[in-house]
Design a protein around this nucleic acid. Structure first.
Lengths: 165, 165
DNA sequence: CCATTACTGTTGATAACGTAAACAATTAAA
DNA sequence: TTTAATTGTTTACGTTATCAACAGTAATGG
């Protein structure tokens, strides 16, 4: 849906087959819609992405953390962290300092500007969270999060992982 | 975690701050883990992706559909469909035929080989769905899907969309 | 009938993200 | 002290989403 804004007459009688029986499909659909929404709601305004937001939040709450530590906390590869920190550093939101105990690693800290910035984003995030998930009752909401937490560490071959989260 | 396979000593006492209060975060985590898992479980084996699988399933159940129709059904931009159909056609699973009623559009059909292939993938998908979501009880599972369906069409500014699904 | 508007598949661009392999510098362990 | 492991980094490839534009075709209004 780029230049044109028409809504075609497809919708109605399409058979989704097994797709609608697969929980993973609904999980993906819900996630895509949520991301699309949160992006339009405030990520565009702040030039944020889920990855950037996560790093800012974690570094803000855990000053001095290593890049690899943050990567592990977010379930990312540490190589993905480089570009993210680069961008945040270039925007003056975050700071790489040499670790005093390990000359390989770099300790991450928020700048004063970064703290102020993230405070604004955080508030909008909580606001969006309230409004977007208003289609669920409080009890449902609580139960949903409980289930998602389990799914975030579930595997198909046995018991939950312990790796991250 | 590319060449090296070590698990660093980070995990324990990291404060995730607002992140853990955001439902979108958990939604994303659950989705990422699910995708990672389904990929290792059988997508690699069949060289599939969620997008390819979805198209195959929809075309299989709705022969003769237009590319744009499939795109809308999946909530995609129609431009994304081109590469997907190209790949599936190159693999002999799907077929583009000129529409008899509209010279612009192309009707999509499964090949015999495609039908057989998709039958196998579909079976594995249902199997994985059962095993992976075994961390939920039957009632929870049902309720989760119910909530995800609502979130797939929710917006932060008012009532659900009617666009797709 | 014709001009305008809309829709089709397509291409190309940008970007986020995930995955993976490799490297130099540094540290830890045998 | 030799060997193995970890850190940040770069490079690469692939998937997916989004957006803008184009030529060919269809539908619509006047």
């Amino acid at each position: 849906m780029a230049t044109d804004e028409r809504v075609t007459q497809t919708g109605a009688e399409i058979d989704f087959g097994t797709l609608h029986e697969l929980t993973g499909y609904w999980l993906r659909s819900a996630q895509i819609n949520t991301y699309r929404n949160v992006r339009r709601f405030f990520f565009d305004e702040f030039e944020m992405t889920p990855g950037l937001f996560g790093v800012l939040e974690i570094v803000d709450r855990n000053p001095g953390l290593t890049q690899t530590a943050v990567a592990n906390a977010m379930g990312n590869d540490r190589s993905a962290m480089v570009a993210i920190i680069d961008r945040l550093e270039k925007r003056g939101l975050i700071e790489r300092r040499p670790s005093p105990v390990d000359r390989r690693s770099k300790a991450l800290y928020m700048t004063a500007q970064g703290k102020k910035f993230q405070a604004g984003v955080r508030e909008r995030a909580l606001q969006h969270n309230r409004e977007f998930f208003a289609v669920l009752s409080a009890g449902e909401h609580r139960q949903l999060v409980d289930m998602l937490k389990r799914l975030a560490t579930s595997t198909s071959d046995g018991q939950p992982q312990t790796e991250w989260c």
